[in-house]
Every structure is written in structure tokens, then in C-alpha cells.
């Protein structure tokens, strides 16, 4: 017998740790990575590689020389941020912009608050919004997707996203029906599979849902935020659509187009910046869903997911304070005996 160890109970531990959660998220993103490479070719792989490498590098250098803490790059969180950031930019973005985005994501949005777990906002979204506001032209000129090895079209051709087409068309006075019937509009099926213009990771709803299913299966995320988010967005956009289908997009298209699925399952569920109690998570999801549709319909940008999530991130501390979990013995006043 060696020397005995004394510690407080419990003496056994569950199987999940931070690393397994982070790498679980990365695994969940693999289908979407494949789809993006399929439609955008090696450019997509280039963006992902640069983004991940830059995020890991910034995390390492800041941790080592500024925070002087233990090495954290292998905990997987910087990897997740890197892939998510890549998912949120077009595949033809210049390398230096990706690096700048990574610096903002990791350096400003995460490490300046003290690293993993301390950031109030989702780092990848901060990076994306920074890029979107600083370089609006590059961030919104989307390469037209083409199946890998398909002959013809070159990467140089760019086109708008589904939501972009609709937004511009509606403000030009056309009806939704006209726009959806027009040539070059992706349509439901293509949005589902991924043959639409857009950021790397947001194009294929199917690949993202596959990954989300994996995260549910591994119990990395819970149903609360996604259900509340999609539910409220669906209901809100559905009401608008019922009011006037000519100028409001139908709810199904809202779900499939743009970054909705990516945002709902991969970024709104970010543990660090979302509320803790189930009730709070529901409130968070509902708020984000309403804001998304609000921004999409009446805002200047065609896309509202990132802003909506960031705004709700800002409310997270308040939600945490206001919506406590139901305490045992609290809700049921027992008067017996």
C-alpha cells in the first residue's frame, strides 16, 4: 500500500470532461465541414485551416505570454471557435481577414475576459460580427456553390444568399412568390442540402442537423435553447406570413435559409454565454428567436442570427438572476397532516 489519499466526497466522477465536450462539438461539425468542401472546393478547406490555426495560435500566445497560465490549447475550445468562425465567413475571404477575425474572437472576445468560461459573448460570433461590420463587401460576396469536380463554373463568380435575394427583392417591391419562382433562387431542397450561397457552415441544414443529433445523443446540448429558439422564430415568422404572404417569407424558408440552424444548435447553445437554468434557457431561446426574425424582416441586414444571439448573450447574467431553477419543495405547498 502506498500513502492514502483523503478527499471530500464524491470519490467517483462522471465520464464527461471539458475536453470531451469540446471535441464532441468538433465531431458534430464534421458533416458540415464535408458539405462545405464539397460545394466550395479547396477554398473552404483553406478558410477552415487558417481560422483554426490562427485561433489556436492566438490562444497559445496569449495564454503563455499575457495570462501566464497553464497551456489551454488542447482543451478543444479554441478549435471549436476556429471552426465556428470559419463556418461564419464566405469561402473566398482573404487570409488576413480570417486571421483578424480570429484575433478578435480569441484575443478580445475570449482571452481578455480571462479565457475559457469567462467570456460573456460567443467568441466566434464576435469575430464574425467584427468582420461583417469592418469588411461588409468581402463578407457578403458569396461564391456560388458548385458540386466538387463539377465542370464549368469557376470560383470567381459570386452571388447573393437566399435571404439576400429575398431581402433585396422585397425592398424593391417584388412579392416573395415572384422572387422564389425566379431563376437562380435556390429553393427549399437546395437549402436543405446545401446548394446555396452563404457562409461555409450555414448552407446545409441536413449536415448541421446530423451533427446536432450527435450532440443530443452525447448529451452535450439540451433541448431547451434550440426548441425555444426555433419555436419562437417559427411562430413569429408564421404569424407575419399569415398576415401577408406577399412581403413576408414563410417560416419554413426562415428555418432553412441563412445561419438559423447553425446558430440555433451550435452557437446559441454555447454553454459559456447562455443561461444556466432550464427556465432561463427557454427565455433565452425565445428572445433570440424573436430578435432573429425582427432583424431579418425589418433590420438592415438580411441575416439576424448572430446579432440576436449576441444581444441575448448580453442578457444572460440578468436571465440567470431572474430565472432560478425550481427549488425542491418550493412550488408545491404541502398542507397535510
Amino acid at each position: 500500500m502506498s500513502i492514502l489519499t483523503v478527499s471530500g466526497s464524491p470519490h467517483v466522477h462522471g465520464h464527461q470532461n471539458v475536453k470531451s465536450i469540446m471535441y464532441g462539438v468538433v465531431v458534430a461539425m464534421i458533416p458540415a465541414i464535408f458539405v462545405s468542401v464539397y460545394f466550395f472546393g479547396l477554398d473552404a478547406a483553406r478558410v477552415i485551416f487558417i481560422s483554426v490555426a490562427a485561433c489556436l495560435f492566438f490562444e497559445w500566445i496569449i495564454q503563455k505570454y499575457l495570462l501566464k497560465g497553464p497551456l489551454t490549447i488542447n482543451d478543444g475550445s479554441a478549435l471549436v471557435t476556429g471552426v465556428l468562425l470559419a463556418f461564419n465567413v464566405p469561402s473566398n475571404l482573404p487570409a488576413w481577414m480570417i486571421v483578424a477575425g480570429a484575433l478578435v474572437s480569441i484575443g478580445i472576445a475570449k482571452m481578455s475576459f480571462g479565457g475559457l468560461g469567462k467570456n460573456p459573448f460567443n467568441p466566434a460570433l464576435i469575430g464574425r460580427v467584427f468582420l461583417l461590420i469592418s469588411f461588409p463587401v468581402q463578407m457578403t460576396s458569396w461564391p456560388v456553390p458548385k458540386a466538387l469536380f463539377a465542370p464549368g463554373v469557376t470560383d470567381a463568380i459570386t452571388g447573393p444568399t437566399t435571404l439576400g435575394i429575398l431581402k433585396e427583392g422585397i425592398s424593391a417591391g417584388k412579392t416573395v412568390q415572384e422572387l422564389m419562382g425566379s431563376a437562380g433562387f435556390p429553393g427549399y431542397m437546395n437549402d436543405l442540402v446545401g446548394a446555396q450561397g452563404g457562409s461555409l457552415g450555414e448552407i446545409s441544414a441536413i449536415a448541421l442537423l446530423l451533427g446536432a443529433a450527435y450532440m443530443f445523443f452525447r448529451r452535450i446540448i439540451t433541448w431547451h435553447i434550440p426548441a425555444a429558439y426555433i419555436g419562437s422564430a417559427f411562430v413569429f415568422s408564421g404569424i407575419l406570413w399569415l398576415v401577408n404572404p406577399a412581403i413576408y417569407i414563410d417560416p419554413v424558408m426562415h428555418m432553412l435559409a441563412g445561419g438559423m440552424i447553425l446558430g440555433v444548435f451550435y452557437m446559441a447553445t454555447d454553454m459559456v454565454s447562455s443561461p444556466m437554468s432550464p427556465r432561463g434557457q427557454l427565455v433565452f431561446g425565445v428572445g433570440a428567436g424573436l430578435l432573429t426574425i425582427l432583424i431579418r424582416v425589418w433590420g438592415a441586414y438580411p441575416e439576424g442570427v448572430s446579432f440576436a444571439i449576441l444581444i441575448m448573450n448580453a442578457f444572460t447574467p440578468l436571465i440567470n438572476k431572474a430565472f432560478k431553477p425550481r427549488r425542491f419543495g418550493e412550488a408545491l405547498p404541502v398542507k397535510k397532516g
Binding site: I3, L4, T5, V6, S7, G8
Partner: peptide, 22 residues
């Protein structure tokens, strides 16, 4: 000399309540 290994929260108050110490 050390007799046992203490492996819990790094707080004297807690260590004191847990056992007599290392």
C-alpha cells in the same frame, strides 16, 4: 512528515473540516 495525500478544494477551512490534515 506527510501521512496522507489531501486532494480536495484548496481551502484550509474545508481541509480542517474534512480531516486532520496531511
Amino acid at each position: 512528515p506527510q501521512k496522507v495525500i489531501y486532494d480536495s478544494a484548496g481551502s484550509c477551512a474545508f481541509a480542517h473540516s474534512l480531516s486532520s490534515g496531511e
